[in-house]
Design a binder for these strands. Structure first.
Lengths: 191, 191
DNA sequence: GAATGCATGTAAATCGTTACATGATTAG
DNA sequence: CTAATCATGTAACGATTTACATGCATTC
């Protein structure tokens, strides 16, 4: 067996299992929509596709196309779809959380009060924008009333989670900022 | 100037700015509580501390202690605290989201229905546990009514965010699982 | 006296990003 | 005819993790 599979490999397998694609298309979908919940750059795409082919989970079909290397369309095999399903239903690893905003918040006591408030308000705006974007996707997919358990329904669920996350974060930013501003007002009045 | 600073460097600066610590203590706090929002392993701690000292943001004091290297206590300088504050109030980079659970959910259409439901319910339980843990921290810090803008107040805000995140995720897992089970029931009845 | 915890540090391996290199096709 | 897009791939660099290596102090 070759190197063991990384999360990116399964992300790519999931894409070609939904629809046969070229590596280029995989890269594009990896940015959007996959990038919303699993962002990774394109560097590993072609090696990963080769690996999936070696594992027998994906097949390639070379067709004439642009560029010096032609064009290759990748599709998932039945074994690939089964492997994808097994992986998807297996418990996710404790995701290493990497939340720079929260980390920064934990050191905000060392910052200038106004600068902190400005940062938090800007973040609140950012997440409100993100929330709207997710809500749009939810409306779009939801309009079709996709069958429960279908691929589109899965996409709807992930967008719903995105919207919930963005809303929660927006509200949190606003609350933290409000406390900071109200405290400034009180101190000024008291002084 | 040496290599430019990484997020880990600021995380460590934030720790020694709160309280003078040894590298070992920094490692421990990096797991808990920092690990809740910025998990990273200990490999880079000592190089990072050296870097912070070189930058003039942290000072070392060697004291006799266990081990072949003795013991070194690191503290932040005033310049270090100012740098920390500037960093904390600067807008966070678009964090590349890495949410394995959501990624898996997007491929759940390929999975066995029961296995999917089991996974989601297990995740819901996990996040309910996490939520309780965060709620306990919130109660603990909140009991002191820390001054707005203080270091402890910042810790309270991060714990509140953790609790909100865990609650949102728990509810989402439950909803997705419920839809999946109810659909199975309907199909069975109809059949 | 054995295990655990404190304490420092390094090295190798892996993982991921960015930049590079090439070139056909299509739209303006 | 020029720019953008489609398309494949590699190489170098940087960041992270894991494993290693050492040894004092304390508790059981």
């Amino acid at each position: 067996m070759p190197r063991n599979l990384k999360t990116l490999d399964y992300a790519i397998l999931g894409l070609v299992a939904r629809a046969p694609s070229t590596g280029y298309e995989v890269s594009a979908r990896l940015r959007n929509p996959v990038g919303y919940y699993w962002a990774e750059s394109h560097g590993g795409v072609y090696p990963s596709l080769r690996l999936l082919v070696d594992a027998g989970w994906v097949t390639v079909r070379s067709v004439p196309g642009p560029g010096p290397h032609g064009k290759k369309v990748y599709s998932a095999t039945r074994a690939g779809r089964r492997a994808l399903g097994r992986w998807a239903a297996s418990p996710p690893a404790d995701a290493p959380p990497r939340d720079e905003l929260v980390l920064k918040t934990s050191s905000l006591w060392a910052a200038d009060r106004d600068a902190a408030v400005r940062m938090l308000e800007a973040e609140a705006d950012r997440w409100e924008k993100a929330r709207k974007e997710y809500a749009g996707i939810v409306r779009e997919i939801g309009a079709d009333e996709p069958e429960v358990g279908s691929a589109r329904w899965c996409g709807l669920q992930t967008a719903l989670r995105g919207a919930g996350f963005a809303r929660g974060r927006r509200d949190w930013c606003r609350q933290v900022a409000r406390q900071l501003t109200e405290d400034v007002t009180n101190s000024t009045r008291r002084a």
